[in-house]
Computed example of a mutant assay.
Amino acid sequence: MKTLLILFTTLILLSGCATHQSPTGRNQVLLFSSQELEQMGTSSFAQIKKQEKISQDAATNRYVDCVASRITAVLPNSGLPWDVVVFESEQVNAFALPGGHIGVYTGLLHVAENEHQLATVIGHEVAHVLAKHSNEQVSRAQLSGIGMQIADAALGAGGISNKELYMAALGLGAQVGFILPYGRKQESEADIMGVELMARAGFDPSQSIALWQNMAKHGGEQGPELLSTHPSHGHRIDDLAQMQQQVMPLYQASKPAAENSCQFTK
């Protein structure tokens, strides 16, 4: 019981002392410093580059780098360098990691039909970094680890033999790792921030709707939203449609400055 009390007290103190607000006002528990997350991001990116095939196609690399550079140029502390790598893979995916790292899979370029749609995805992924979603996920994993110890102690004290069943019921069978799937609230937050980023960078925010329509066609049947960590395509499209009036003026103001088109030419 003493061990259980210590673990429970630790869990309460950690979650209480590390509460922050996200850019949209949502409460977050962040247990790690920016420096620690940057080290994790840099280490993870180095590992991914060893595991995945890096594209050597010059035109593809120029195109992706052009879009990413315009997005990162409008970020706070935009003077910081970002490492952009294109991976040769049919995955329809992209990601951004703390420490200034962006990865884009060539499969995404078959669904994102133009520079504006690619900017939708890159802006969304960079927004995850700005909103400290990786810190939030790793912190949650850390707290889950403590929670699992609490459950172990409690179940042991109660004499329950089938711990696995109860651990599953408690939702503590979580995968612990650096790149964790984001939740629906985080995804929606990244949508809001990402569409603003792309508009400020001179990309047409109306194309964000077209991008997710393309994603819906590519993804086929999707289960109920409550059974997914991501918003449904329909919900996501509706939210982006409602934001158009807010972000279109940003796009109109930034268009004259966005002279470097990122057209994909071989």
Results as ranks from 00 to 15, higher is better:
Leu5Trp: 09
Leu7Cys: 05
Thr9Trp: 13
Gly16Thr: 14
Cys17Ser: 11
Thr24Ile: 14
Thr24Glu: 12
Gly25Thr: 03
Gly25Val: 02
Asn27Ala: 14
Gln28Ala: 06
Leu31Val: 07
Ser33Pro: 06
Glu36Cys: 08
Glu38Met: 07
Glu38Pro: 05
Ser44Tyr: 03
Phe45Lys: 00
Ala46His: 15
Lys53Tyr: 02
Lys53Asn: 09
Asp57Thr: 07
Ala58Ser: 11
Val64Asp: 06
Asp65Ser: 12
Ser69Phe: 03
Arg70Asp: 09
Val74Met: 02
Pro76Ile: 10
Asn77Lys: 14
Pro81Ser: 07
Val85Glu: 06
Glu88Ile: 01
Glu90Gly: 12
Val92Leu: 04
Asn93Leu: 00
Pro98Ser: 00
Gly100Tyr: 03
Gly103Tyr: 02
Val104Arg: 00
Tyr105Cys: 01
Gly107Trp: 01
Gly107Gln: 02
Gly107Glu: 04
Val111Met: 02
Glu115Leu: 06
Glu115Asp: 09
His116Phe: 08
Ala119Phe: 10
Gly123Asp: 00
Val129Lys: 01
Ala131Phe: 03
Ala131Ser: 12
His133Leu: 04
Asn135Ala: 15
Gln137Lys: 08
Gln137Arg: 09
Ser139Asp: 10
Gln142Ala: 15
Gly145Val: 05
Ile146Ser: 05
Gly147Cys: 03
Ala154Leu: 15
Gly156Arg: 07
Gly156Gln: 08
Gly156His: 08
Ala157Ile: 12
Leu165His: 12
Met167Asn: 12
Met167Leu: 14
Met167Ala: 13
Leu170Pro: 14
Gly171Met: 09
Gln175Leu: 15
Gln175Tyr: 13
Phe178His: 02
Pro181Tyr: 02
Pro181Glu: 03
Tyr182Met: 04
Lys185Tyr: 11
Gln186Phe: 03
Ser188Pro: 08
Glu189Asn: 09
Asp191Ile: 02
Asp191Met: 03
Val195Tyr: 01
Met198Ala: 04
Met198Tyr: 05
Phe203Ser: 01
Leu211Glu: 04
Ala216Arg: 12
Ala216Ser: 14
Pro224Lys: 11
Leu226Asp: 10
Thr229Trp: 05
His230Ser: 05
His230Val: 02
Gly234Thr: 05
Arg236Pro: 03
Ile237Thr: 05
Ile237Gly: 04
Asp238Arg: 07
Gln242His: 11
Gln246Ile: 13
Met248Asn: 14
Leu250Met: 15
Tyr251Pro: 10
Tyr251Cys: 12
Tyr251Thr: 13
Ala253Trp: 13
Lys255Cys: 03
Pro256Gly: 09
Cys262His: 00
Thr265Phe: 06
Thr265Ser: 10
Lys266Cys: 04
